[in-house]
Write a protein that binds this DNA or RNA. Sequence first.
DNA 1: AAGATATATTCTAGTACTAGAATATAAAGA
DNA 2: TCTTTATATTCTAGTACTAGAATATATCTT
Lengths: 179, 179
Amino acid sequence: MTNAELAILSLIAEKDRHGYEIESLIEERGMREWTEIGFSSIYYILKKLEKKQWIKGKVVRQAGPGRSRVVYHISAAGRKALRASTLEALSVPHSASSPMQLGLANLPAVSKAEALAALRQQSEGLAEHRGRIQARWESQKNLPFFVDAMFDLALTKITAEFNWLDRFIDQLEHKYDEN
Amino acid sequence: MTNAELAILSLIAEKDRHGYEIESLIEERGMREWTEIGFSSIYYILKKLEKKQWIKGKVVRQAGPGRSRVVYHISAAGRKALRASTLEALSVPHSASSPMQLGLANLPAVSKAEALAALRQQSEGLAEHRGRIQARWESQKNLPFFVDAMFDLALTKITAEFNWLDRFIDQLEHKYDEN
DNA sequence: AAGATATATTCTAGTACTAGAATATAAAGA
DNA sequence: TCTTTATATTCTAGTACTAGAATATATCTT
C-alpha cells in the first residue's frame, strides 16, 4: 500500500466517509503538512481501494442541496491491510534524502553568494514550516499520546535540519577560497 | 527538473558519460543511499534530458568487446538548467515526512507489543543505515567540503531520528494503559 | 419556471517513473 | 565457423498519481 492509500484508508477506518469529506478533513487537520495528496487524487485512490476490496462504497442521499454522496466503509480485509501496512510503516526505515542534499552535492555549480542566498531562504522556509507545525500542535489540546509523538518527531527532525543548516551557512560565510 | 534528472545531469556535467557508466557510477559512489534511481530509469531519463536539449548523445565505438555506446555531453542550456535547479534545491525546503510518521498516526491499529517490535526493527534499520553512511564517508579521504557537508547532514538527520525513536520506544514500554 | 448556488464526482490527457525481458553487437574461444 | 561472453541499449506493459475542466443533481432564489 502506498502512503497516500494508507492515509486515506486510515481516515475511513475512523468512520465511514465520502470523498469530499476526506478532502475537507485533510485540509482541516493540516495533513498536507505531512502528505501531499492532491484533491484530484482522492477519488482515484478511493477507487483503487475499492477495487482491492478494502473499502465498499454506498450511494447516500442527505438533506440539503447537492448531489448524492458515495460513502465508503472499511471491510474486514481493509482493517487487516491497515494493520499490516501500519506495522510496515513503523518497522521499515525509509529516510529519503531531501532535495537540499542533492543541491549540496552540486554546490560548485553556483557561486558562493548565490549559494548563501539560497541556503538562507531554505533556513527561513524551514523556520516557517516549524512554526506552522508548532502552532497546529499548540492549537489542539489533550491529543492522544501517539499524535503528540507525531508532532514531536516532526519538530525534532526539522529542528535538527535547521540547526545543521545554520551552522553550515556560518561556515560557508567564512570561506574565502571559493568562486 | 526532478531529483532523478538533476542527479543524472550532474554526473554528465562532471564529464561526458554513457548510460551504463552512469549506472556503475551510481552503484560505486553509493548514490542509492540518497536517491532511488533504478537501472531501468537511467536510459529513460537520458532520453528526457536529450529531448529538453540539456544533453546531446553521440554514438561512440571503443576498443574491446560489446556494442557501441551513446556518450552524452552537457549543453550550455544544460549547464544553465543545472545551476537553476541546484539553486532551487538549495533554497526550497521540502521536508517530507517518513512513512514512520504515518505509522505513528495509526498506532491504535496495532497492539503495543507489535508496535514495540516494529519500532525496534526500525531502530535497528536506522542504525544500520547510519553505519553504512559512516563507513562510506570514512572510506573516502580528502573530500571537497561540500561532499563532507552532505555526509554530515545525512548523519545529523538520521541520528536525530534514531535518538528520538529510542526515547519513544522507552516511553512506550512504560505505558500500561494500552491494548 | 428559470437560473443561481451548493455539493460532490468524473473525465481527459497528461507526467514520471519502473520491473524485467529482450535485443544488439563486437571480440574471443572451441 | 560457431558459440559464448562481455558490454550496452531498448522494449513492453505496467503503476501511481495529478492538474484542471467538466459534469451531475438537489435546493434556493427571484
